[in-house]
């Protein structure tokens, strides 16, 4: 397979396979979760559910002082790479072209040097996260193989994308192909791993907030 054939394959059939697995997997899992249902709560509500739920979705994004003191690295690095990932995925112009093609909507991009800087920060934040995870005995004990796989699957698109943009390492077709392939791997792993937190974390927060709200407790 030449580099051109490789690029054609990852831009063509392989991308569709990855998107299909991603969408089908995510939809199945979400329906499964929602359809599970909960036992009817027959107690008399002491407060609303909706507003406390929404508030909790946002409030849980702010670390409470105790947590921050205990694990500042996890929080700071986690924020850095999540925001960095968000910016590089959504505001790099070639990515916007992709979203425009698939979803039919587009938005203004950010200047490329800014996205470039953000990508580098995210890459280093992710490397630091791994070091932190390996050095901290509790974190290391809590981590299993999946955590490392998910970490690698998230880092690879960033690194290959950085190399592709700077035209490093391999001829551009190969590097761009590897970047697209790494994203496809991420998409395929997504529904079956902790990456699902992209969808479920906000649902879980809302559910917690709503449950507390019903009991008249602040969450």
């Amino acid at each position: 397979m030449t580099s051109v054939e490789f690029l054609a394959w990852v831009r063509g059939p392989m991308f569709q396979i990855a998107v299909a697995i991603f969408v089908v997997g995510v939809v199945i899992r979400l329906i499964e979760i929602f359809a599970l249902g909960r036992k009817a709560d027959l107690s008399e509500p002491r407060g609303g559910e909706t507003m406390p739920g929404i508030v909790t979705v946002f409030r849980r994004s702010i670390p409470d002082p105790g947590t921050f003191k205990r694990s500042p690295f996890t929080i700071v690095l986690g924020y850095l790479f999540h925001i960095g990932l968000f910016i590089t995925i959504l505001f790099f112009v070639p990515h916007i072209e992709l979203f425009h093609d698939v979803l039919g909507v587009q938005w203004p991009g950010l200047p490329t040097p800014l996205v470039d800087a953000v990508a580098i920060i995210s890459i280093f934040a992710m490397l630091a996260i791994l070091v932190n995870r390996l050095r901290n005995p509790v974190l290391r004990f809590l981590s299993n193989g999946e955590d490392y796989v998910v970490w690698a699957a998230t880092l690879l698109p960033l690194v290959t994308g950085y190399f592709a943009f700077h035209r490093m390492l391999f001829p551009y077709q190969t590097m761009l192909g590897l970047h697209i392939l790494s994203v496809e791997i991420l998409l395929i792993l997504f529904p079956f791993t902790k990456l699902m937190h992209f969808f479920t974390s906000f649902v879980a927060r809302w559910y917690n907030g709503a449950a507390f709200g019903r009991r008249g407790v602040q969450s």
Partner: peptide, 23 residues
């Protein structure tokens, strides 16, 4: 160059449909 060569929107729509049925 960053746009896939095949119709991803169609894959997305069919994917949601298939996912809904299987889900």
């Amino acid at each position: 160059l960053s746009i896939p060569t095949e119709d991803t929107t169609r894959t997305l729509v069919y994917g949601v449909g298939t996912g809904a049925v299987l889900g």
